[in-house]
Nucleic acid binder design. Structure first.
Length: 204
DNA sequence: AAGGGCGCGAGTTTACATCA
DNA sequence: TTGATGTAAACTCGCGCCCT
């Protein structure tokens, strides 16, 4: 069916352009055309080749391209004869089509990476906010611990346990050690708890 | 190893269509 | 009508691979 339409079109084209695709009409043209550089195979009498493949030709080529992007010479010759084209035209079409395909792929890839990057940036902001929040909580916890230890000292200043100083009670990662170096790694999800740090959760 | 033929990718040129 | 712009077809160049 499509094959029949293509053949009809080929007949029409061959009537319009005797010497199919190797010449363009020189007289009575509706538009002035720039002269094309001669290709290797062109004889001195011929000028440019006909441009724009027909819809059917393109459809058939697209169908073939969909099956396989590479073009073996046997398939090229078969396609060329089926479509009434020069094998060289088929080869060129496939080359250009591969280039377009690659370009489109790159665009898609770029678009995906851009989306991923945007998501990562948002996540980074959320994590930074979380870190700030946790720092605040930590500061509050330190203050609370300080208040409690002062109360304990005041009540039993003479008891044997009174030697329990603030420094001794502090977890090693608090106070003197500071948190500056852990900005990027100290992330505690809101819903989770850390073994051995349950006391922190009391203040959350 | 050398060199010729061939196909391919990348980049460019050319012809044409479309639109403001 | 015309110039700008986009796109497809064709071209050029350089490279790698294969064969002799």
């Amino acid at each position: 069916m499509i094959r029949g339409q293509i053949e009809d079109q080929m007949v029409l084209i061959s009537q319009l352009y005797p010497g199919v695709y190797t010449q363009v009409p020189e007289q009575g043209e509706t538009k002035a055309r720039r002269r094309r550089k001669k290709s290797k195979g062109e004889s001195s009498g011929t000028v440019a080749q006909k441009r724009k493949l027909s819809t059917e030709q393109v459809n058939m080529l697209e169908l073939n391209f969909g099956n396989e992007h590479k073009l073996e010479s046997e398939r090229k010759d078969r396609l060329a004869s089926e479509l009434g084209l020069d094998p060289r035209q088929v080869a060129v079409w496939f080359q250009n089509r591969r280039a377009r395909w690659k370009s489109k792929k790159l665009e898609e890839e770029y678009s995906k990476l851009k989306t991923v990057h945007e998501n990562v940036v948002v996540e980074k902001c959320q994590l930074e906010t979380e870190v700030l929040k946790l720092k605040d909580q930590l500061t509050e916890a330190e203050k609370e611990i300080h208040r409690l230890s002062e109360r304990v000292d005041g009540v039993s200043s003479n008891s044997p346990t009174s030697s329990l100083s603030m420094e001794a009670m502090d977890p090693p990662f608090l106070g003197g050690f500071g948190m500056e170096g852990f900005d990027n790694v100290f992330h505690v999800p809101e819903s989770s708890s850390i073994p051995g740090m349950e006391w922190v959760n009391l203040y959350m």
